[in-house]
Structure formats: structure tokens, C-alpha cells
Design a binder for these strands. Structure first.
Lengths: 178, 178
DNA sequence: ATCCCATGCGTACCAGCGTACACATGATGC
DNA sequence: GCATCATGTGTACGCTGGTACGCATGGGAT
């Protein structure tokens, strides 16, 4: 790829898109709103991302990478000695305690895949990557169920606004691990 | 409520809204698209539902009622003799086997509550109603976890397009029940 | 030095949107 | 009957959106 005048331009647009989704939701995402947020002209966003789907793919991929880092940072997940249920419950706490807007953006883009075929592969990457990571400590079927349960618990917390109950999460995750 | 010239009018609009969401997603829902689908003039939709949020609330409430019926129809859920995990796994099969578009609509509206405060109480009604129903056979905490796991499994199936594995669902639900 | 083209910019077009509002109609209470 | 008002209809306005397209600019190949 040839060098560009503003090599950060594309990245700035992606960052702006994530902020826009955080503030106004996917419904508020448009070429214009992103351009304004990134402080670039309209033509620049349409040049780098022909369609909004392209932009959402890039945004979801970046958000996924961020959460994947938080998973990997919790090295204890690979440690056979560590309590897997407790580690996962703590991970949920890290995501759900305090400011939840980041996780909201992640889930909003993740769930948008329901209707946007372009996002499906990226959403699947996340779910499979997470499951593969967990499969190192259990079997693949259990790993998938853990991901499903974590998704469900996070969604319930986000939808109801209820506080996160780490002890409850740990107990239920432990039951699935068996 | 006074009688109306077309007592079915409001209901027809809600049904049309559900069809529109099924075909084009929430992004394709507008007063005009619903009016066209219901074969009523634009003014009629705006009269019955001042905002799209109002319409979505009505649509989600109706979709919820439909799924609540499928839960209650499975009377075995109340039977202390029946295998709860098997019953729930079969319920998932009923939802996910064959045509999934109905469940897609349900989840799309359900998840829209993430960004639309007006939908949150309705989404919460569903989750709590389902959990209350299950709590008759277990404790409240386990019931909530079962709802979360079912949500997660359904979402994974819808997002990946993978076929529903009832035996797997039954096994994981059984582990949560303990 | 020169040319090419990826990159960046500005603007204009048209379609679809929510909303508002004036008017039509017929059920209901008196 | 008749007045009243909930219900139903048609149309117009202003705004925002995606898209297209012509032009500007400067890095890199030749």
C-alpha cells in the first residue's frame, strides 16, 4: 500500500465511528456523522469506506481486537491450576463494572450481524476465537456453552441495567464446566 | 374505548410492522414502509402510533406474547416429573428448527432495547416472565441462568446460521440445573 | 523531469424520512 | 336530529441520508 498524505486518516475514521455508535447507536451512524466526528470531509469517509457496512466491519473488528486483548491479558485462563469459572466471572466484572458504554458498542455491532451478512464473519470470528481460547481448558462443546452463557449474562445485565453479580456468574459458569 | 370504523386497523398495522422487520430489519421500519405493508395511508400509522418507538413497543409486546404462548403450551414445564432440561431443549428446537425468521424478529426487537429506553421495560417483561415461569421448577438464580444460556445459544445459532443441536443444548441446560 | 494514479476534497442530486396540519367521516351522547 | 369528537385521510415541508462525480494534490515509478 502506497503511503498516504494522512496515514492516520483511515484509523481516525474508524475511531470516530466507534464513538458515534457509542453516543447515538448504530441508527445514528452515517457517513456524515462519522465525518463530522472525525473532523474530515464527507468525501473522505466515502472514499475509505464505500458503504457503511464496510465501516461497521472495520469498527467491529477493532472492537473485537480490544476485547480479545482483555481476554489474553488474563493469562490465568491458560493456567491449568487456576479456577476457570472464577477467572471468567472476573473477566465479566472487568467488562460490566463501571462504564459499560464500550461493551454496549461491542454488543450493538456484534448483534447487528443478525441483519447484516457482511458483519457475520466478523461476529463469528469473535465467538469462535473466544471459544477456541476456552477450549484449551475444557472441551469444545463446553467452551461454546460458556461463551453462550457469558453472552446471555452480559446481555441481561446490559438490557436490564442491573448490577453485575460476580458470585452468581461464577457459580453458573462452574456448573457448566461441571 | 369507543368503537372505530375499522376496529382491526391498529392490529393490522402491528402485524405489518412485524412483517416489515422480518423482511428488512428494524433499519427498514418507517411509518411509510409500515403503511404500505398494511395497505393503509401514511396518516393512519402516525395517528395510531405517534412515534416509531410506540410501534416497536407494540410489536415487541405482541411477539413476546406469541413466544410466551409457546412456553405455556409446553405444559410439561410445570410438571415436576418431566425432565426440565429436555423440555427446554425441545422448546429451543421448536424455535430454531425450520423457519427462523420469526425468532429473528423477536431477537431484533428484543436487542433493540439496548439503545431504545422505551423498549427496555417490554424486554425486561419477557426475560422476567420466562424466568419466573422456570423458577417454579428451580430456584430464581438458576432460572435466570437458564434464560441467559438459552438466549446465548439461540443467538449463536442465529448469528452463525449453524443448525440447532438439541442434544448439546439439553446437556448444557442440565448442567446448569445441576 | 515528467507522468500516473492513489488519495483527498467539495458539491450537487434525489430519495426517503418524520412531522404537521387541514380536512373528511361517522359513532356517540344529548 | 344535531353537536361533538375520536378516527381516518391526503398533502406538503424541511431535513438528512447515500451516492456520484469532477477536480486538486503530491508520492513514486520511469
Amino acid at each position: 500500500m502506497a503511503r498516504r498524505y494522512d496515514p492516520e486518516r483511515r484509523q481516525r475514521i474508524i475511531d470516530a465511528a466507534i464513538r458515534v455508535v457509542g453516543e447515538k447507536g448504530i441508527a445514528g451512524l452515517s457517513h456524515r456523522s462519522v465525518a463530522a466526528e472525525a473532523d474530515v470531509p464527507l468525501g473522505s469517509t466515502t472514499y475509505h469506506f464505500k458503504t457503511l457496512d464496510d465501516l461497521m466491519v472495520a469498527a467491529l473488528r477493532q472492537a473485537n481486537a480490544g476485547y480479545a486483548r482483555t481476554v489474553l491479558a488474563r493469562g490465568a485462563l491458560q493456567d491449568p491450576e487456576a479456577d476457570l469459572a472464577a477467572e471468567l466471572a472476573a473477566l465479566g466484572g472487568e467488562w460490566l463494572a463501571g462504564d459499560r458504554s464500550g461493551l454496549e458498542v461491542e454488543y450493538e455491532l456484534y448483534l447487528a450481524a443478525l441483519r447484516r451478512p457482511a458483519l457475520r464473519p466478523v461476529a463469528a470470528e469473535w465467538a469462535e476465537g473466544f471459544a477456541d481460547c476456552l477450549a484449551l481448558r475444557t472441551d469444545p462443546a463446553t467452551a461454546r456453552a460458556l461463551v453462550a452463557l457469558i453472552d446471555g449474562i452480559c446481555l441481561q445485565a446490559l438490557l436490564t441495567g442491573a448490577p453485575y453479580d460476580e458470585a452468581y456468574a461464577r457459580e453458573m459458569l462452574a456448573r457448566v464446566i461441571g
